[in-house]
């Protein structure tokens, strides 16, 4: 299987605090990979390194075959990113957001126009083309934000708590978009605080105090930790944390 992310003893320290402590793991093409951990476990620092936004203190990693320390610009071009906090520009219309992000990633005008039509049709958003993003309901915004994050067909998309606050029906529609993207070969790297969503991932890693303490399929993790669901697995592991989220 083709590897899309590799890390080898990837480490980040701030002064004498080790935020990410020698993590090593691989993520494969088309995989939905859940990256879990309690607040303060080091997830955000790890993601920032993988996205080329922060240089590792030691160890190494590649994303889409580019070195995250030396080729951070190429890394950025080949990934998509979406978080609950930031994703779209509220004061731009739906089509303007797509146009802007397409342009930033160097897509041609024609390509942007064609893809815009296609995405709006798939989402059933044709009638909202001229709508300002700020007047869309939250659930629509999140679905649109996801489509924007994979608009330039990145090899991998990072989703940082993408489904916070939406109703359970919309949350599931969002996950079906994730499944579709993964089927097309886009690798999905996702963090979430909803433990039922951890079950939707092909494999899940759980970080505790800067280290990856467990990595496996949800089924195997449940077996390994003698738990009936992922919430129990998470509670068992995260309770061992000593550094807390200060």
């Amino acid at each position: 299987m083709q590897k899309v992310i590799t890390t080898d003893k990837l480490t980040k320290t701030f002064g004498n605090f080790t935020a990410v402590n020698a993590i090593s793991f691989d993520v494969y093409k088309g995989e939905i990979f859940g990256f879990l951990g309690a607040n303060g476990a080091g997830k955000t620092t790890a993601i920032r390194m993988l996205c080329g936004l922060s240089k590792p203190t030691s160890g190494s990693g590649t994303v889409a075959d580019f070195d995250i320390a030396r080729q951070s610009e190429q890394v950025k071009k080949n990934i998509g990113y979406m978080s609950q906090k930031f994703s779209l520009y509220d004061d731009l219309k739906v089509w303007e957001n797509l146009r802007l992000f397409g342009g930033i990633y160097g897509m041609k005008e024609r390509e942007i126009a064609e893809k815009t039509d296609k995405i709006l049709a798939e989402l059933g958003f044709e009638s909202e083309r001229e709508t300002l993003v700020k007047s869309l309901p939250l659930g629509w915004k999140q679905k649109l934000a996801f489509s924007v994050s994979i608009f330039h067909e990145p090899k991998i998309v990072f989703l940082d708590e993408p489904t916070g606050g939406v109703d359970p029906v919309t949350r599931r529609q969002f996950w079906e978009l994730i499944y579709e993207a993964a089927e097309r070969g886009i690798t999905v790297f996702v963090t979430t605080h909803y433990m039922d969503e951890a079950e939707y991932c092909n494999r899940v890693s759980i970080m505790v105090d800067g280290k990856i303490e467990a990595l496996n399929t949800p089924k195997n993790l449940r077996k390994q930790f003698n738990a009936s669901n992922m919430d129990e697995v998470f509670q068992k592991l995260a309770r061992k944390a000593t550094r807390g989220d200060n």
Binding site: A38, N39, E161, H193, M195, D231, A238, D245
Partner: peptide, 10 residues
Amino acid sequence: TTGVDPVSRK
């Protein structure tokens, strides 16, 4: 508990 991890929520 919005945005809080499962352990702190519990």
